[in-house]
Structures are given as C-alpha cells and as structure tokens.
C-alpha cells in the first residue's frame, strides 16, 4: 500500500501537470490568456481597465464568430475559406440596401448571398466530393467578383452603415459591449449544437471516421450541406456585426479576419484533421489572438516585424499546446 502511494507521489511534477492539463485542455489556454494580459499591463501600466476590456471583447467577437465557422467545418475535416467573402458581402449589401428598404429587408438581402454560397459549398463538398479548401476558395472568388459587379450598380447610392449595426458593433451599455447581445446567443447556439444535438454528434463522427459514419447510416451529404449553409449564415451575421464596428464598408472589409479565424480555431485546440475540438477553446483562441495583436501594436514595431512575430507565436503556441494536450 505504502509502495503504491510512494509511486504515485514519485510521478514528476511536470508529468502530473501535463496529465492535469490533458484532462482539462482549456486550462492552458486560460493561463496563456492571463499571461498575455499581465505582459500587456507590465509593458503599459494602467492600460488594462474596464474600457480596454470592453474594447478587446468588441474586436474579438466578430473573429470568434468566424472562428466558429472554422471550428464546425474543421470538426468534419474541412475548412471554410469563403467566410471572409460572405461576411464582406453581407456587410456591403446591408450598407447599401438598409437605407432604402429598412433594416429587416436590408438584413434579409444581406444574408441571401450567404445562403447561396453555403449551398454551393455544401453541394460541392458533400455531393461532388470537391476538397473543401478548393471549393470554398472558388466560391469565395466568385462571391468577390459578384460583389464588384454589384458595387457598380450602387455607386450612385453610396454606402451608409445602418444605425442599429453601429450601436451593436461599437456601443457599450453599463460597461458591457452591446455586441454581447448578439454573441451570447450565437455562442450558446454553437455550443448547444455541437454538444447536445444529434447534428453536432454527426459532425464529430464524420470528421473522426467518415467510412464508419456512412456504415452507421449517416447520410454524409445531408450533414455536409447543413454544415456549410450554417457556417455561411454565421459568417454573414459576423459581417453585419463587423461593419457596425469598423463603420467603413469596403470590398476587402473582412479579409484580414480570414486567416486569424483559422488560427483561432487551431490555437483553441480544434484539430484540422477533424473529430477533435470544441467551441469554448475557439472563443479563448479568438481572445488570445486579439490580445496578442494589441500587445504587438503597443510595442510599436514596424508592421513587417509585427506580422513575423504574430506568425511565429501562433506556430509556437499551437505546437506547444498540442504537445501538452495530446500527452496520453
């Protein structure tokens, strides 16, 4: 008895920590986030206050929603590179249509291309077995092209970001960003779908072992179609929110969010090969990337150096995280 007790205590501390973390994969992410905030506070004492927190959350939310699209598609072993185009299209259309037709019709029109691109992605990937990378890249290019054509027809009208989107995107009520009014339901929905619904189960199953899923009666194309339409709709919603935050609709509005959305999901522990991961990690990943961006900005480095550092840190964090979590 005493022998086993001694044996248990003899496990080296490092290994015990790793085991603890591999059982609770979110813990290292929270630690990293706190470390980044502390570093920020040390470099610029006093920067971390209520206003800064609200601001960080505001910028992290559109990224977190787009990263939600990546999380869900990556769980099936796919990826959705059309999210930035879909978001941009939604943002641009709502800024040109809402003035004339009112917010409801404006939002409906803005989300129409999202549904169409989602359907195209789903049909391409689910039925014709095009690789998701190529499929979503293709629809993304087509979408941007259509948006350029559309832009010419509305040059006379000009753009105006609807007031309710500015309120949602930038407003703060009682210290809390208004964007949370949108994000909390959206995030709850994603978490609920992934953890509690049959559809969520099937996403994990398809990504873990597609052959087994088919032989278990899963109708692959239906799952994939629903997934990509859902992903696209979310991207459209993120675009609406983002234009309210940036307040300057353009044809490349959401482009800078595309690769960070993939990075946030990966940093958050979702496997790009499918079957593993979850949305809570992704939200933490989006926060980490947003704080990291602030940190690199206040270091007042040249743009190039900032990007180099950002890339290296994402690589390092992902590699280190996988080593910690996958120690089984």
């Amino acid at each position: 008895m005493s022998v086993t007790a001694a044996g248990a205590e003899a496990v080296p501390l490092g290994k015990r920590i790793r085991r603890f973390m591999s059982d609770r994969p979110l813990v290292p992410l929270v630690i990293l986030l706190v470390l980044l905030v502390v570093a920020l506070q040390i470099l610029r004492p006093g920067i971390v206050n209520e206003r800064w927190i609200a601001n960080t959350v505001k910028f992290a939310i559109p990224l977190a929603i787009l990263a939600g699209c990546q999380t869900m598609t990556m769980l099936t072993g796919g990826i959705d590179l059309s999210v930035s185009t879909v978001a941009t299209m939604a943002a641009f259309i709502v800024s040109t249509q809402a003035v004339e037709h009112g917010p409801v019709i404006g939002v409906a029109l803005a989300l129409l291309p999202a549904v169409l691109i989602g359907l195209a992605n789903g049909i391409g990937v689910g039925i014709f077995r095009v690789h998701p990378l190529i499929m979503t890249l293709g629809t993304s290019l087509v979408g941007i092209g259509c948006l350029q054509v559309y832009q010419r027809t509305v040059i006379a009208t000009g753009t105006k970001v609807p007031a309710f989107l500015s309120w949602l995107g930038t407003g703060v009520t009682g210290g809390f960003p208004n964007a949370l009014l949108l994000f909390i339901p959206v995030a709850s929905l994603i978490l609920f779908v992934l953890n509690r619904t049959g559809f969520g189960r099937l996403l994990y199953a398809v990504g873990d072992n597609e052959r087994a899923a088919r032989l278990s009666g899963v109708v692959y194309w239906k799952v994939i179609l629903a997934l990509y339409v859902g992903s696209s709709l979310l991207a459209g919603v993120a675009g609406l929110l983002y234009v309210g935050l940036i307040k300057a609709p353009s044809l490349s509005l959401a482009d800078p969010l595309l690769l960070p959305s993939v990075a946030a999901a990966v940093v958050g522990g979702t496997s790009i090969f499918g079957g593993r991961g979850g949305y809570t990690g992704t939200i933490l990943g989006a926060l980490i990337l947003t704080v990291l961006t602030t940190l690199l900005t206040i270091l007042q480095m040249p743009e190039g150096a900032r990007r180099i550092l950002f890339g290296l840190i994402v690589l390092l964090v992902t590699a280190a995280y996988l080593r910690i979590v996958e120690d089984r």
Binding site: G198, R201, L202, Y204, A205, D208, N209, R211, A212, A213, L215, S216, G217, V218, G275, R276
Partner: peptide, 25 residues
Amino acid sequence: PEDRKLQALFLTQAIRTNMSIAALD
C-alpha cells in the same frame, strides 16, 4: 464490418457516442 477500427469505430470519441450513432433519431 470486417475492420472495426477503419470501418466501425470513432476511436477518439466516447463509448456513449459510438454506441448511439445509428440510433440518434
């Protein structure tokens, strides 16, 4: 199926998920 790891199981998923996958409805 003949090869349970390749054709039947979701190895990283819980036993619960593996058992209920065909009966979800």
